[in-house]
Design a binder for these strands. Structure first.
Lengths: 191, 191, 191, 191
DNA sequence: CATGAATGAGATTTCATTCAT
DNA sequence: TATGAATGAAATCTCATTCAT
């Protein structure tokens, strides 16, 4: 039996880590952070309880890492224009891309919404979320400044709220929510 | 000598019940249902743990009663027009009234949003919520049918989603959210 | 409103006391002493919890008084012959009377059997029970000495055990237990 | 380094399970099911409260498993003749074996008697008990039919009651109960 | 004499986390 | 790296008892 190479070990670790995160995401989405137990997660991941603690320091740490990585990936994917100022076409792309990302990782966004409505849990990931949401809103503010509406800040806030509201309703019932029609109306009215 | 009269006891019960519900609402709003403990609630209410169970059968029962009473009151207050069809003026009133109610009972609506994103908790109050949300959406659909837009269902869904999104953002930071400006934009664009 | 006379008050107290004991007996019989709660008893008796403590010092005291009174009454009724020595006819009467008493107060005897199999509860009423059971067995020993069997002590123990065994099975299912036939066999074989 | 082997874990589980059951049996025998607390059991077993729930779903489940296994073992040991019909010699063996089993596991039979006198607890194990007691009585009925007594059913019931009564008295005070002499009288009179 | 709201200790149960292997 | 038995703190809930009225 030759020992595993370092590369193989790293690969194995990465895969197992992903397995755990995926399982945790599903359980968190269903039960929320407080309602999910470590047992549920390890059972779903098909690993022992002890092993989870080789990868994450605690249940809280697991949550934090999930959120951090989720948003890092999000920011990576979602940045239509490096300078942060949107053209009208980019605004359309922006709306489109947001809902497209939603579909790709429903459990993550379910977790996101369950976190933001729980101050006690929100505190754990507040910084990371702000790091992401801040520029997002800022980009919108600048966009509406450019379009010349009277109250760009309120427009940006509303637009952000709409994205939240539509996302929230979509993830609760993706099958029946008329996301495409809704998207068209949004773009039509808010571009 | 003589025992407390029945009237006195009823009065005591009513008041204490309200005390408990108010305390529970605050704790639920802060920690969500799963994250709130009965100890936290009774401590905030200034009573012993045991006493809560003189008033509510269980923590679940407490939640259910809070939700039921909250929505019963809501429906009582919020009914712009008995026939369920809105005029444009009533639509304005409708938007206005929604946000006005929000302000009156922030903890209740925080609880509401923390529930709808937790399937396991949502199941406990699903029926009651649907009883309330169904007609709400239906009223919007009928309104948009009357205004003659191309896709009234999608408009209604979007409008409902917007109310959710704005409410969600408002309750998370009522001080800084430009609710009045946002309301004007909504009415302007969606009436 | 003239005040109640002392006699009336004593009468009322006695009746209420009986009401409580009867209720307690039923609940104890169904749930056993440990499984019965004071609430169950007061509910069944139709009184407040506080009132029970006007009549009995504690749940334990209630049990003790029930047992004491039950056996005092039993001894009062059940004493075929003052000198404690049975004739054959009296032996028949003795068996007959035992089962007859059983029928008259099933809950009491259910309680009795649930107590004797619980050392921790038995300790509370041990003395009273022994006060009653001792002479009972002694009478049987003397009877079998008189009949000239080889081992009167063992006969007496067996006879006592039989009375227990039959009683136990009878109270568990009075409708279906062939108590009359069984009695005949006992008298036939053990007189 | 390497985790415990599956065999080791199975071994540990089996032993600990036995430890818990033995402790529970002692506590149940002393306090009865309702009067025994999980704390008492785990303290006697020398384990933490939490661990009991790795082995049994609940206190009720613990009781049920004890009863099931107890009777399964009993039926295994106690089956004088496969065809279920006793000869006179087998009847003697039957009586003998019953009391012999009693001696081997006093706490179990104490538990048994404390259960049958508590309807609320009896309900939990009713089925299992009937599964065992039914054939037992049936075998006796057939035996007395064969001996040609007038009322075989009553004889069988009485015989069952006697076994109960003697057992009950024996387990309450094994040191002083003249079990051998009593056995002889039973066999003499009821064979 | 009578009520039942209230308490607090303790019951059953859950669960994040540790650790021997 | 991986296991899962084990812990202990804390959760939900029960209940005998007290006490203001």
């Amino acid at each position: 039996m030759s020992p595993r190479t370092t590369e193989q070990n790293i690969e194995i670790k990465k895969e197992k880590r992903t397995t755990i995160i995926d399982a945790a995401l599903e359980v968190f989405a269903e039960k929320s952070f407080m309602g999910a137990s470590v047992s549920m997660i390890t059972k779903k991941a098909g690993i022992s309880k002890g092993l989870l603690y080789n990868y994450f320091e605690s249940k809280e740490d697991l949550l934090i890492q999930i959120i951090h990585e989720g948003f890092d990936e999000f920011v990576h994917v979602f940045d239509p224009n490096k300078d942060g100022v949107l053209t009208t076409d980019e605004f359309e792309f922006f709306v489109d891309e947001t809902f497209s990302l939603l579909k790709k990782d429903l459990p993550f966004w379910k977790l996101y919404f369950s976190i933001i409505v729980q101050p006690a849990v929100m505190a754990l990931v507040q910084d990371k979320l702000m790091e992401f949401i801040g520029p997002f809103i800022q980009t919108l503010v600048e966009y509406y400044q450019k379009t010349g509406v009277k109250n760009p800040e309120a427009h940006a806030m509303l637009m952000g709220s709409i994205m939240d509201g539509v996302s929230l309703n979509y993830i609760m019932d993706p099958k029946n929510y008329p996301i495409e029609d809704v998207k068209k109306i949004i773009i039509d009215k808010f571009k």
